[in-house]
């Protein structure tokens, strides 16, 4: 039996289904991410695990114990909120020590533990500060330490980084992963940012409309999306129906309903040229309609046989020959066309 086992969990809000007979399992020490657009039910699932959102059906087992109907305070689950949820009337030290104090420990007993936690999240020197004197990133570290000091069975993170600016977010992603590995704590992370999910997770559950549509490690999810929703959500995949692909490649048999092609696997060649040696794939004539620079990536919009394709290439000197409105040859490698269910 897995460490965390969720069976047939169902929750509705008025007439919308937040969780649709959802089941999933994961193991001790895993860093699991729930990824999906807003309204897909990922936060509701997290709140259900925490006991903050009562469910109508189904069960949640942690370490073999049924916690479905336990009060939040008895579940031994830690949670970090997007809005931090720090207690404004307490210092960093008091915030982190709050849970231990509620357990009946005296300040002299828990102070050492709290100090170690402050070192772990790199906040030494801020013990006596109040939350409003800290930056957003620092506040989130306090919130993290406050949950971790309780040694919870599962740590839940509800979009903890989305209120922070890009650079601090990147740093905290790395920090979070380091701390999680150091304590090997079972973690459930919720985000709508696919890049963040791919960077940080051991395993990703992609959610849509209260269902889990795909699960797997980041590599699997990115290279083999199970359906059109995942393909569009996880990357900027070109999704083509079978007959569109047939039109593009000028023949061939395509069994699946539609196919996903990553923008970075499509190659561009000057007119009348092609790859050497040409492997298994298709060459089609096309025209560059637009070029955008996103930094390290050049993004081309190429039209070929009435199909529009997005093509991403690294922004290097090799790309300089490609201009807007230029006729080019488009190379689509056959093994990179992922059939979608």
């Amino acid at each position: 039996m897995s460490y965390v086992q969720i069976d047939n969990l169902t929750k509705t809000y008025k007439d919308t289904i937040a969780l649709n007979h959802l089941s999933l399992t994961f193991d001790k020490g895993e860093f699991v991410t729930l990824l999906g657009p807003s309204g897909c039910g990922k936060s509701t699932l997290l709140r259900s695990i925490a006991g903050l959102a009562p469910t109508e059906e189904g069960s949640i087992h942690v370490d073999g114990v049924d916690i479905t109907h336990l009060k939040p305070k008895d579940r031994e689950i830690g949670m970090v909120f997007q809005s931090y949820g720090l207690f404004p009337n307490m210092t960093v030290l008091e915030n982190i020590g709050f849970g231990l104090r509620m357990k009946g420990m005296k300040k002299s007993e828990y102070e050492g533990k709290v100090k170690r936690m402050i070192e772990l999240v790199d906040l030494v020197g801020k013990e006596q500060s109040y939350p409003h004197q800290l930056s957003g990133g620092q506040q989130q570290r306090v919130a993290l330490a406050r949950s971790l000091v309780m040694e919870p069975k599962i740590l839940l993170l509800d979009e903890p980084l989305s209120a922070l600016d890009a650079k601090i977010r990147k740093n905290l992603q790395v920090e979070l992963r380091r701390i999680q590995r150091e304590l090997s704590i079972t973690t459930v992370f919720v985000t709508h940012d696919q890049e963040e999910a791919l960077t940080i997770s051991d395993r990703i559950f992609v959610m849509d409309l209260g269902n889990i549509v795909q699960s797997g490690n980041p590599e699997e999810i990115y290279t083999h999306p199970a359906n059109e929703f995942v393909a569009r959500f996880i990357g900027n995949y070109n999704v083509l129906r079978a007959e569109q692909l047939r039109q593009l490649t000028g023949g061939g048999s395509f069994a699946a309903v539609s196919y996903a092609i990553r923008p970075e696997v499509i190659q561009l060649f000057p007119e009348h040229a092609g790859p050497e040696p040409s492997g298994n794939g298709w060459l089609a004539a096309g025209k560059v309609k637009d070029i955008t620079v996103t930094g390290n990536v050049l993004r081309y919009l190429v039209e070929s046989q009435d199909q529009r394709l997005q093509v991403d290439h690294l922004n290097t000197a090799k790309e300089l020959w490609i201009q807007r409105d230029m006729n080019v040859n488009v190379w689509i490698p056959a093994e990179e066309c992922v059939p979608l269910g």
Partner: peptide
């Protein structure tokens, strides 16, 4: 003060509703 989040946070840290 976002009382709802504060209460959620406090309860998850083992506080009773009155605490």
């Amino acid at each position: 003060v976002d009382a709802i989040t504060l209460v959620d946070a406090a309860e998850l840290l083992g506080a009773s509703r009155i605490q």
